[in-house]
């Protein structure tokens, strides 16, 4: 009876969601030429290439046109990491002795030593080239965090300094907010997160004004936060039951 009720409820919810999606009609000519959406889309595409000189439109929207939203997103991530740390803080006296089922073999330890610099380099590449190629601060930061995860899994006594992580994270956050505040002083219109540096040439590494600076800050911040999360969770010793 319970299961039938659940399936019935899911069917109702699914019906209304699918109906809404069919009404939107993604990719239709009607959707693309809609008089409400078309000017917004055209403005974004034109300003990205002509004024900001950024090759990746997604990056220009995320960091420049909707930069304030990105600041909020980074704040949400920071708050969730802080909450996780405060919840797990009580049992933090175990730090150092990670619970391992079996130690990693020599192949894994040697291989991860070789792979770790390559992974960090890939992550750095992704967030430095955020305005030229797909990816950006979040993706690059997560890639770097997975590199640290590999090292933490391979070496039992590998540890990350929480103070260093906190310093990197705070400096990156302050850089983001500081660049945003400089827009008040040096920007033409004097708004938050306004571009005040020269735009440069399209497809150049040093192009797009403040976008690379902000994305590098976001990359460092996300990498530090997620490494802290993984380190905290890995060091959390569960009560052995059964």
């Amino acid at each position: 009876m319970k299961k039938v009720l659940v399936i019935l409820l899911l069917a109702v919810v699914g019906f209304y969601i699918s109906e809404t999606f069919f009404d939107i009609g993604f990719g239709n000519s009607h959707f693309v030429n809609n008089e409400v959406i078309k000017p917004v889309k055209d403005t974004y595409l034109q300003q990205t290439v002509q004024e900001l000189k950024v090759a990746n439109t997604v990056t220009s929207i995320v960091v420049n046109f909707r930069g304030f939203d990105t600041l909020g997103e980074v704040t949400v991530l920071f708050l969730s990491v802080t909450a996780l740390g405060s919840i797990l803080y009580k049992r933090r006296h175990h730090v150092g002795d990670r619970s391992v089922l079996f130690s990693a073999s020599s192949i894994v330890t040697a291989g991860s030593k070789l792979l770790f610099p390559a992974i960090v380099l890939l992550g750095t590449y992704v967030f430095i080239h955020g305005h030229l190629s797909p990816g950006g601060g979040f993706q690059g930061g997560v890639i770097i965090a997975t590199g640290f995860l590999l090292m933490l899994l391979a070496y039992e006594n590998y540890s990350v300094s929480h103070t260093n992580l906190a310093i990197v994270e705070s400096l990156a956050g302050v850089t983001f907010a500081g660049v945003g505040l400089l827009g008040f002083v040096y920007g033409e219109q004097g708004t938050f997160l306004e571009n005040f540096l020269p735009s440069g040439v399209l497809n150049d590494l040093f192009s797009g004004g403040v976008i690379p600076i902000i994305y590098i800050a976001v990359g460092f911040k996300v990498a530090a936060e997620l490494t802290g999360v993984i380190y905290t969770v890995l060091n959390e010793k569960g009560e052995q039951n059964g």
Partner: peptide, 19 residues
Amino acid sequence: APDVALTEATIGVALTTII
């Protein structure tokens, strides 16, 4: 949508699974 693909690959495949 390569940007979203990269996010999904890193967060969905690697990080969430490991946690």
